[in-house]
Amino acid sequence: MWFLGSYFILTNLGVPVQQAWPDALAFTGVFLVILFILELVFGFYIPQGKNTWLLVVIPVLLSFIAVFAHKLIMKWVFGDQLDYLNVLDTGFYLRWAILAVPAVLIAIIALVVSKLEQQGESQKREAAISELAREAELMQIRQQLQPHFLFNSLNSISALVVAKPQKAREMVLQLSDFLRGTIRKDHQEWVVLEEELNYLRMYLDIERVRFGHRLQVKINVTEEVKSVRLPQLLIQPLLENAIKHGLYGLTGEVEIKLEAFTETNYVYIKVQNPFDPESAVSSGAGFGLNSVKRRLELLFGRTDLLSSVAKEGEFLVTLKIPQIK
Rank of each mutant, 00 (worst) to 15 (best):
G5N: 12
Y7F: 09
L10M: 06
T11V: 11
V17A: 15
W21Q: 07
P22M: 01
F27K: 14
T28N: 15
G29Y: 14
F31M: 14
V33D: 00
G43T: 11
F44L: 05
Y45Q: 01
I46F: 02
K50Y: 08
K50H: 14
T52A: 08
I58H: 04
V60I: 06
F64T: 08
F68L: 02
F68K: 07
K71S: 14
L72C: 15
M74V: 05
W76M: 03
G91F: 09
Y93W: 10
I98N: 15
I98P: 09
A107V: 00
S114I: 03
L116H: 11
G120A: 13
I129V: 14
A133F: 09
A136P: 08
N155F: 02
S156R: 10
I157V: 15
V161T: 12
P165Q: 02
Q174C: 00
R184M: 08
E189W: 01
E195W: 06
E196G: 02
I206T: 11
E207N: 02
R214I: 01
I219V: 14
N220T: 13
E224Y: 04
L238D: 09
L238H: 09
N241K: 05
H245S: 00
G249F: 08
L250T: 09
E263R: 11
T264A: 12
N273P: 03
N273K: 05
S282V: 04
L289P: 04
R295Q: 04
L296W: 03
L298Q: 07
L299G: 10
S308G: 06
E314G: 04
F315L: 12
L316Y: 06
T318D: 12
T318L: 05
I324M: 12
K325L: 00
